[in-house]
Amino acid sequence: MNETIIMQFPSSYQWLNMIDLICGEVTSEMGFSHSALNEISISVIEACTNALEHGNKSVEGTLVSVIFHRKQDQMVVEVFDSGEGFDYEDYLQHIPDPSDIHHQRGRGIYIMKAMMDSLIFEKLPDRGMKVTLIKNVDDVE
C-alpha cells in the first residue's frame, strides 16, 4: 500500500469537520487501534487549526493544503500554510504546561507531540510552514 491523497481547503474553521471525516476514511483499515485513529484525527485537526489560525491568520482567499500518505506501516500527513511562519525551535523549547488554566491557548503542539510518533516543523523557502505528522501502525495498543 502506498497511496497519496491531496486536498486543499479555505482558511475557515467550518472545513475542519471535513478534515475529520476524510482523516477517518483515509486511516480506516490500516490496522490502527480505535484510540490511535482518534489520535491521528485529533492531531491532524490541530495541525490544520494552527495552519489556518496562526499561519494564514484566517485571511480570506488563503488555503491550507493537506497531503495524506497512506503507507504499509505508517500514516504520514503533511499540512501546509502560506503564512509568515514562526520560530518553532524556540517555541518547542517553551511549550506551556497544557494543564495551566491561565493559558487559553498553546495546547495544540503539545497535543500533537503527545499523540503522534513524530512531529516535524519546517519553514518553507519562500513562505509558509509545513508540519509533518507520522503515526506508525505497529504502535497498536
Binding site: 490541530e46 489560525e53 488554566i101 487559553q104 495544540g108
Partner: peptide
C-alpha cells in the same frame, strides 16, 4: 459534540476560569 480542537478546549477553560 463529536470532537473539538484545542481552541474549543480554550473556550471551555475561559468559561471555567
Amino acid at each position: 459534540v463529536r470532537w473539538m480542537n484545542s481552541t474549543g478546549m480554550g473556550i471551555l477553560i475561559t468559561g471555567y476560569t
